[in-house]
Amino acid sequence: MTAQAALSESRASKLMKTIGILPFVLVLTCVLLALYEPRFLRTSNLINVLRNASFLTIISAGQMLVIIVGGFDISVGAIVALTSVSSALSMVGLSSMGIESAGVIVALGCLMGLIPALMVGIANGFLVSVLKISPFMVTIGTMTIAAGIAGYVTGGTPIYDMPELFTREIGRGKVFGLPYIVYAAAIVLAVLWYMQNQTRLGRYFYAVGGNEKASRLSGLNTRKYIWLAYVLSALLAGIVGLFLTARVGSGEATLGSNLMLESISVAVIGGVALKGGVGRIQMVALSALFLAVLSNGMSLARIDSKYHIIIIGLVIVIAVAAESFRESRRSNHV
């Protein structure tokens, strides 16, 4: 780009360049929705939207980390199911062993839920970073295995009888009027923002995805960061699994089956580049919010749920096309 072009660039377009069009689209969608359907603005509805956006933010944050290092995590949905089943079974088991304190049961149960998630993440990271197998195939494999295990242990029936502390308080309770999951998402957002912007680790994730060979030549342990991204993704999926289990009140092997596609969609709409090396958590959170508003709006407007996925599919294709258009225009200017 020539110096003149850069100078004549208006402030508005500069703003567009740094934050993209997503915030404007989001605001526009909200305004239109509020005008069309006043029920959208009801507190209970807004909290509902925020809750869904929070689930999406956390799981997509993990997906984002993996895509930034140049990979893909297909297994997140199955990890949610596996966590759900394993935490529910543990809690039921622990209370039948005669442990009185609901707090201990819930804490241990959550821990037992996260362990399988962590193991899947470690396996994904190992297979991708050390054995250099295509992330796509690796996570399809682990997804199938995790879903299979979850289905096998439950025999297909939901697991009930978890402590009320878990299902009522964590699942449905509120602090200052907002569900727990919203705070969890806010913490994930803050921590990842800090990591991406203020720490070496964040830089290294970008570097590894941007050019793995160059990173290695710069002295980075590229394997470590790729591995870590998969582990974090699995862990975040596990956390989503716990909250979802609390929310629905039962451990289910079918929980989160659509979260894999949704997390990838959120990441892509949020500007995470599939080639790796690009992506910001705040945009992913916005994108999660956008998708939650969109689904909510369609429900309020009584659009058949079959059309939802069609519309979401269209949005994804448009987002990817816009990204690739911007990319090609940029490279033409150089």
Partner: peptide, 29 residues
Amino acid sequence: VFQEFSLIPDMTVEENLFLGHEMTSGGRL
């Protein structure tokens, strides 16, 4: 100075220069 392959295209000049040797204070860049 390698002939090729040692810059991350999507990072800034500054980020590339310090890659692998970032200066930090208290864990913060």
